[in-house]
Design a protein around this nucleic acid. Structure first.
Length: 320
DNA sequence: CGGATTTGACCCGCGC
DNA sequence: GCGCGGGTCAAATCCG
């Protein structure tokens, strides 16, 4: 990424979307100041594709491409109004990022919304596969070679010389207005690194899912231009159930975000639905939201049904 | 004491 | 080839 682009990115979260990755979804719903925003863009957004077949989860699983998602979301993205509680959901393709990083050629000069500029999920999944093999290679390496003493010390220098381009899993970035850096999403994370971010006073933290064999990672950083905005980037897909689900999920015992987590399939980027919910952390356990979700629904409800529960207007629009 | 966090070192890809 | 920056490792430290 060029310096100029980086600066733009920090100054304007939307730049992340429009200029760097060409894909985005801006969710100006659940505006704290406007409860009616409930039935606003998300409804439109989800009507962009049949949610019974095309869920966000499906997207992550590769059954729909980013193009579709982007188009659907774009229906709700174009309003720059109400910066109060914007949430950006960004399917990031690392190849696109690289293109953008290459300079003006790919990322900035094209129309950000050009459908052809997106990359299908399948290609991303291929990349994910390669990444996985690459990663597992890396992870297994210490155990694989039985080295001792000095050899162990120099193990990093003895890495396999085979040069495979490192590929990354599909990423999804969320912009969340929050005082808390590490937002609760129902999964357990272990911090494994922290780096200073260039041109930003706020560090970037690296987290890894603590579940065995789960390779999901996330990065958390603050927008230095607007410190109240947390940028969370998920990479990979959970291969296990949400711990919050397993812990037992009596209604009213879980925070809305955990409940949302429990309501969906494991690989879903939980914060997405977290953002669907009112974020005032003081949700009445007797509220419609809680009462509408039975334990079974929480676990098995199709996304469509879930959204009906979460977004009443969604139901209304679907079934006038 | 075990798990989580911190933090400096290291690796890797990329641009110049 | 070199330097830079992002990402990861792992020993040290913290903490419940």
């Amino acid at each position: 990424m060029s310096e100029e682009k980086k600066d733009l990115y920090h100054q304007d979260p939307f730049f992340y979307n429009q200029h760097e990755i060409n894909q985005s979804s801006l969710f100006p719903f659940f505006n704290d100041n406007n409860p009616s925003v409930y039935n606003h863009p998300v409804t439109q957004t989800l009507q962009g594709f049949d949610p019974s077949f095309m869920t966000f989860t499906d997207c992550l699983h590769g059954s729909m491409d980013y193009n579709t998602l982007s188009r659907a979301f774009d229906m709700s993205c174009n309003s720059p109004s109400g910066h109060q509680n914007h949430h950006l959901i960004t399917p990031i393709d690392t190849n696109l990022k690289k293109q953008a990083a290459m300079g003006d050629s790919a990322g900035t000069s094209e129309n950000p919304s050009t459908p052809n500029s997106s990359v299908s999920a399948s290609s991303s999944n291929e990349a994910a596969g390669e990444e996985e093999s690459d990663k597992s290679k890396k992870d297994k390496q210490p155990q694989g070679c039985e080295e001792d003493g000095d050899e162990a010390k120099s193990k990093k220098a003895n890495k396999p010389k085979k040069k495979e381009k490192r590929q990354r899993e599909p990423r999804f970035a969320f912009l969340t207005k929050s005082e808390i850096d590490h937002l609760e999403d129902g999964y357990r994370w272990r911090k494994y690194g922290q780096k200073a971010v260039k041109n930003s006073p706020y560090p970037r933290s690296y987290y890894r899912c603590t579940s065995q064999k789960c390779t999901v990672k996330k990065r958390v950083e603050r927008n230095f231009q607007d410190p109240s905005i947390v940028i969370t980037t998920y990479e990979g897909q959970h291969n296990h159930q949400c711990p919050a689900t397993l812990r037992g999920n009596a209604a009213g015992m879980l925070s809305p975000s955990l409940l949302a987590c429990a309501s969906i399939r494991p690989s879903f980027p939980q914060q997405l639905l977290t953002q669907f919910l009112p974020t005032n952390n003081q949700v009445d356990p007797n509220s419609m939201f809680y009462r509408n979700l039975s334990a079974q629904q929480q676990l098995q409800l199709p996304d469509y049904g879930l959204l009906q529960d979460l977004v009443p207007s969604f139901s209304n629009r679907q079934k006038p």
